[in-house]
């Protein structure tokens, strides 16, 4: 009798929920030191960006002539820049531009890449052929050069930089989604979904997408790292965030003219880019290991 009760659906469901694949993957993620460090640093920077108004000691765009290219002191721990603005406050506010640009451009790349990749992988034939040649063509132009060219034609602004980076990154997700769809669409559960009369769109979004999501998540995390570098690069060239608003890339651009008398102007924004990018890379690597079904615990 007790055996019967144990195998009843209600009883069987409970332990299954406690040990859902997501939870298991998260536990595996937390066992990786690198990934945990990455996650913590990313969260710290996210907090810094969100709470910038409260934690920044000064207004990031306010010039103070007494701190003009001033060395780091107790009042200005990271020193002052070429207009006497507080470098620490600008680094804190700069996190907004960088993280925002990283996340938004990857969301844009996903918004383009997933539907196109699903279509390409699911439809096959001529549609797939045309989409793939177009994707190959986009991938043939080096990522940053494509982003620079697009930003150049769109005009310099942070929003346009995000659009340029997002569109330039989209082909990576088209390729990935398509490859994943092709390996998943021959599975029995997709066949079953088709057999009971689901529409192709429903099969693509309800049955295929959830199964290819882990791979997309890993790639998104790693692409955020590249997108942050790309935004910093565009801002460094003057194609991203426009002055006086702070961004790490544009701070480095200003810093390169004062390297001998104010090196701190270059050290801290660059260090921030490095830390954030490193953390996203660590997190992405950890996620890949944790979500890979071959790594069972």
């Amino acid at each position: 009798m007790s055996e019967l009760a144990a195998s009843s659906p209600a009883a069987a469901k409970k332990p299954a929920r406690e040990d859902s694949p997501t939870r298991r993957a998260f536990r595996r993620l937390l066992r990786r030191k690198g990934a945990v460090v990455g996650l913590v640093v990313v969260l710290l920077f996210v907090c810094m960006a969100l709470l910038a108004d409260w934690i920044a000691p000064y207004n990031p765009t306010e010039a103070d002539w007494s701190a003009l290219r001033g060395e780091p002191t107790l009042e200005h721990p990271f020193g002052g820049d070429e207009l006497g603005r507080d470098v620490l406050s600008r680094v804190i506010y700069g996190a907004r531009a960088s993280l925002f640009a990283g996340v938004i451009s990857v969301l844009l790349a996903l918004a383009i890449g997933i539907p196109v990749g699903l279509l390409s992988g699911y439809a096959g034939g001529v549609v797939d052929g045309v989409i793939m040649r177009f994707t190959d063509a986009m991938l043939a132009v080096p990522f940053l050069i494509l982003a620079i060219a697009m930003a150049a034609f769109l005009g310099p602004s942070l929003a346009n930089a995000m659009i340029a980076i997002g569109v330039a990154a989209a082909p990576i997700f088209v390729r990935l989604t398509r490859a994943q769809v092709q390996s998943v669409k021959v599975e029995d559960y997709v066949e079953a979904a088709r057999a009971i009369g689901n529409s192709p769109a429903r099969i693509a979004f309800r049955h295929i997408l959830p199964n290819i999501w882990p791979a997309l998540m890993v790639q998104s995390t790693l692409t955020i790292a590249s997108a942050i570098i790309a935004e910093a690069s565009l801002s460094f060239l003057g194609l991203g965030q426009q002055p006086p608003e702070p961004s790490w890339g544009s701070m480095l651009n200003a810093a390169k003219d004062y390297m001998s008398d104010a090196p701190w102007m270059a050290i801290y924004p660059g260090l921030s880019i490095f830390l954030v990018v490193l953390s996203f890379n660590l997190l992405g690597d950890g996620l890949r290991d944790a979500l890979d079904p071959r790594h069972r615990d």
Binding site: I229, A232, S233, L252, A266, G270, F274, V277, L278
Partner: peptide, 11 residues
């Protein structure tokens, strides 16, 4: 992998 090369250049 994580160092932006323009920053490395400046440094």
């Amino acid at each position: 992998l994580s160092t932006p090369n323009f920053w490395l250049g400046i440094m």
